[in-house]
């Protein structure tokens, strides 16, 4: 049974690695931010599955913190970037 949860966690990690393609590809910052947000939720699920697989319930607190705090990065993102088309992405103050 524990092996099943570990296999599910591995499957979710592979999902994250596949999603990295979007981070590398872009094309604009918002796409990368969306990918990071998806990784955050996938990571929460992975940590919960690992807590079950390794039978250490306190790892659930790490998942709880990820769920609670990922939105802060998005708030900082919209404070600091302005959405531009890909071609003038490299102007000042990106």
């Amino acid at each position: 049974m524990n092996n099943f949860f570990l296999a599910m966690a591995l499957f979710l990690v592979l999902n994250i690695l596949a999603g990295l393609w979007r981070v590398l590809k872009g094309p604009n910052p918002a796409d990368r931010m969306v990918a990071a947000q998806l990784f955050g939720t996938t990571g929460v699920a992975t940590l919960l599955l690992l807590a079950q697989a390794l039978e250490s319930p306190f790892i659930r607190n790490a998942a709880l913190l990820f769920a609670l705090l990922t939105v802060m990065t998005v708030l900082a993102f919209i404070r600091n970037t302005s959405y531009r088309l890909p071609e003038d992405e490299h102007n000042e103050n990106l």
Partner: peptide, 12 residues
């Protein structure tokens, strides 16, 4: 978190 984050990104 994720629904409001998506609202922020989309609105932005």
């Amino acid at each position: 978190g994720s629904s409001s984050a998506c609202y922020f990104i989309g609105n932005h």
